[in-house]
Simulated scan of single mutants.
Amino acid sequence: MIDTHSHILPELDDGSENIEQSMDFIVQAMKQGVKVMFATPHCCDGVYDCTKKEILTAWQFLCEAVDREGLDIQILPGAEIRVNHDLVTRYDAGDLLTLGETSRFLLLELPPMFIMNAFLRMVRQLTERGITPIIAHAERNPMIIARPELAADLISTGAELQITAGSLKGDFGRAPRKTAKTLVQNNQVFCLGSDIHPGRKYRMKAARKFLNKAGSRVQTEKIVRENPEKILKECVDQFILDDQVFMIG
């Protein structure tokens, strides 16, 4: 499995508080069958605005710790970027970190309330630049909860949707769980993320079981592995996944 959303970089945001906690999260992920984790601290959300340099420095530090422990997992950098009016301008200026640093995928967090037409225009501007926006924890956004049909407009305009593993187990309440199920049933989910923070349970294995029961194994594999591989193939030269070696380029 590939975890496309986690807060495991130490001392950057409201995620991991220290390197020990980071390593604990990673070990939990490995035990649940995760081979790759994207480390995605908050950016541009009014509280945390981690810069590319800060993220990449913390990522390198964490990767060195993983290597020292001999852990069989790959950690890749990224960011959870809050949608603001200047998002496209900041992307053009080179301020925003895509998933894996060199991929075309940008993980975005919608505010609780947003103007749909304005955001769709932003999505079109990003896609014109070759970028695919991925909406983080789409099932937890109040507007999408109230109007799940918004998902179709987001996808048709060029965005993809991510859901949180814990939502499928009800960790964030009934409404996000119901919305997550609806998105899964409508085949509108691109990928899955743990969104792991202190105080939350790591739910990737449980979410995979739920997906298998709710739909088909083919759909599950697309969500937990095949679609995220599209990101990986753009940001690494070689990686090992499920005992296969993929050579890029």
Rank of each mutant, 00 (worst) to 15 (best):
N117D: 14
E128K: 12
P133Y: 09
V66Q: 02
V224F: 13
F25C: 01
T4R: 01
E139D: 12
R90T: 03
R147N: 15
Q162A: 08
P77Y: 00
P142M: 11
E69A: 12
D195N: 09
F239D: 08
R177A: 12
P148E: 07
L192C: 02
F119M: 01
E160G: 08
F38T: 04
Q244D: 13
N18W: 03
L154D: 05
L106D: 08
I73C: 05
A65V: 09
Q244R: 13
R129Q: 10
E64C: 06
I55V: 08
I223S: 14
G100S: 04
R68F: 12
F239A: 07
D243F: 09
F210G: 03
L108R: 02
L150M: 15
E139V: 05
N18I: 09
R121C: 13
V224E: 08
A39E: 02
L241T: 05
R121I: 13
T127C: 14
D195C: 05
A138E: 07
L76V: 09
M143Q: 15
C43M: 10
L97E: 02
A165S: 06
T4Q: 01
C50I: 06
D195G: 07
V184C: 07
E109C: 08
S103D: 10
Q162C: 06
L87R: 02
L120S: 03
Q60A: 12
A159T: 00
V47P: 06
E128L: 14
F61M: 15
V245A: 14
F25T: 00
P148W: 10
E221F: 14
E229W: 06
Q21K: 14
V27C: 11
T220I: 12
Q185E: 15
Q238Y: 13
